[in-house]
Design a protein around this nucleic acid. Sequence first.
RNA 1: GCCCUCCUAGCUCAAUGGUCGAGCAGCGGUUUUGUAAACCGUCGAUGCAAGUUCGAUUCUCGCGGAGGGCUCCA
Length: 639
Amino acid sequence: MSQLDQLKHNDDNLYKIRHSAEHILSQAVENLYPDKTIRVMGPATDDGFYMDVETIGDFKLSDSNFPEIEAEMQKIIKSNLPIIRKKITMEEACDLFTNNPYKIEWLDSIKDRGEIITIYSTGNQYTDLCAGPHVNYTSKIKAFKLLSIAGAYWHGDEKNKMLTRIYGTAFENKDDLETHLNNLEEIKKRDHRKLGKELDLYSTNQLTGAGLILWHPKLATSRNVLETFWREEHIRRGYQLVFTPHIAGMDMFVKTRHYTKYINSMFPVMLHQNIEGESKNDYTTDEQLKPMNCPNHVQVFKSSPRSYRELPFRMGELGTVYRYEKAGVLHGMTRVRGFTQDDSHIFCTPEQAINEVQEIIKLTKYIYEDIFGFQKFQAYLSTRPEKYLGSVDMWEFAQNSLIKAMESEKLKYKVDEGGGAFYGPKIDFKIKDSIGREWQMGTIQFDFNLPTYSESSEKDVDDFWKLKTFKDKYKTKKNLAKYIKQMGRGLDAKFVDKDGKEKPVVMIHRVVLGSLERFFGVIIEHFAGAFPTWLSPVQVKLIPITDAQHEFANKVLADLKAGGIRVEIDDRPEKMQAKIRDAQMQKIPYMLIIGAREVKANTVAVRQRDGQDLGAIPISEFITKIKEQVTKKSLNLIK
RNA sequence: GCCCUCCUAGCUCAAUGGUCGAGCAGCGGUUUUGUAAACCGUCGAUGCAAGUUCGAUUCUCGCGGAGGGCUCCA
């Protein structure tokens, strides 16, 4: 956020209300638990406020404290205390907050920045170090609510003490608060974890393992449809599709240096010495569950000498990878430990790079906007970080390629200065779903690490020696050093140019959907579970009103199936209303009601999931319309 | 990994230091119906392991999982 934005922000009445509400919360907590808490700080946010507090000894705050805290806040608000700003000196400030180490630290940083020191007093009961601004009386807080409680590290650093954070929100009036709380309810209704259960889409369980998704038949149907689309679209755009294994030899990830960078998020090595009945002590071929597809793709590229004539070589795979994500970060389908990336690697010459990036952007826009109707997606360019591989020239070349491609495609982007990976610059695509939350999806990254080769250094040996896995395996540092030197660094991918000389190939890593798990998690929420017809697991439900229509309904079923429509018949001995309700709750796009009238006229009565009744239409006409809709991958229903 | 909370039937929810209750779903019947739930019957559960206790689903500890955050996200 720019400084100007920040100012506008602070002046906004809502921000004043929220920041003041946060002060009142802080004051209430202090009133209620004076010797058990130390005040830290808290700001207003885009949708509310939060306050950090340290709890002392065994004392713990939980949401069961909310009623009494809210009551205390209400008391402060009702007292209608004035909130007054005052400028003070550093000495005065140090005196005032001498018992609060957080405020003293804060004062130090204010001093470093050379800013003035201001305090805000609520009546003569509570004074806090604060830049403001605030409302002038506590009674201006007309509507507030505490929402949740969580832990947060001081300064967001996990090495620091864990504080307690209370989240809440405040508004100018009760109606706005009500609306906001209703929106939160809406978000909960769209939650893919809730819909995943209700619509029987996926599950996880303890025996399968945390963060590992079981795709149920319905979602698997949609995934198969999406995968087919993905494959056809990629073949059409000149990609060559491959399959590679889920595991790779350890040597691979020694050469790529994944072990020294990311070993904490990789599943452990599969040691052959642990194989029952294995007598050989030689386990040089130990394997590793792959955390990414790139190395195997490089191996496909390297399987024979590559001519410049073969470039660009666009290699694609729906490749499943496994990463040991920390237990606390797992979340439904959007953050998991096993996932399938719609991965591709493009091997090309430097001259071809811009065009390749441009083609990827075109594909990304097509899929996001045209196919899924994500109207807003944001591109971020991440540039050279402090620690980086390769030369500055290489980085400049790659960054320029990305920028030029985005400009040719008229793609607006924001810059994340220094946010690139150590191995190359990148473009990230983030999608806003229908309720405004942003998700990281696709990415385009240059990779200066994998395709290159260099000798192992002493530091490399040291880095590996620090790892238990390698210490245990090689026993002595001398053994390890011999091994690491033998491995070298990088996978050394080259091509033979027109002049007959071997040259390093440019490698571009890209995903469009990101991972199928996350993508489906996002589109479940985006569509609130009501997928467009082409992607719906069940596209049509046949609802005969009585048994007398079963024969006719089965004929319709056969006709629709013959037309390639995913259709089911509900021939339970239930009332039509109950069948409609069930189909409706399953968000099936079309319900075809079949009663005596339809049998007689050879028609079906079409009810859409949006509640629209299209009346009776001939079966052939319905088939034509729905097929057209599926072919066009329309986001709308027939009418 | 860290802080807080939670874990009761397939799902949603109830109750309790003394043999856990309901609705929906399932199953067996009855009902044959015109655009969001027919009726009757029936099956089914305290995450795992330990401690305190005469007795634990309830209290304590550990583990696992889930949720809200923090940190992280090649």
